[in-house]
Amino acid sequence: MFAQTRKKADPLDQPPSHLGPALKVTGVLDMDGDLYVHGAVLGRINATRVILAPEASIDGDIVARDVHIEGHVNGRIFALNVTVESTATVTGRIFHNTLAVARGARIDGRMPWRPPSYFDTLTQLPEIRL
């Protein structure tokens, strides 16, 4: 899980996962390392880093350390560092510690700031409030 304190290099040593543009996943994705999404996900994503390509479409919550969004997200985002690119469309709250939004991005929702400690205890949160 994301919340565990791991050694620095550990999760990113794992080979990344790629979900292709034609792939549709319904369910929970639990990952140590980078997750590249080009397709559609209906459900929760849990990873160290999540990179959403412009054609990606997520319906559900994202819990990660870093989230990079170029596609569509409908759901909550819990991440220490969030980057929203100009092609992105986000509907839902973005719980973040550091946030970068590019000009042109569409965001509909609140963007609450949280201290880093908030993200360490995140394990229980999404389940409770889902």
Binding site: Q14, P16, L19, G20, D34, A53
Partner: peptide, 27 residues
């Protein structure tokens, strides 16, 4: 996204990934 991308059209579920649910792809 593009330089680090996998070959187009192929989805890779790496060994660190656990999916609970369905996967459907036309590739």
């Amino acid at each position: 996204t593009s330089t680090a991308s996998a070959p187009r059209g192929v989805s890779v579920i790496s060994r660190a990934l656990k999916i609970t649910g369905q996967l459907e792809s036309s590739e």
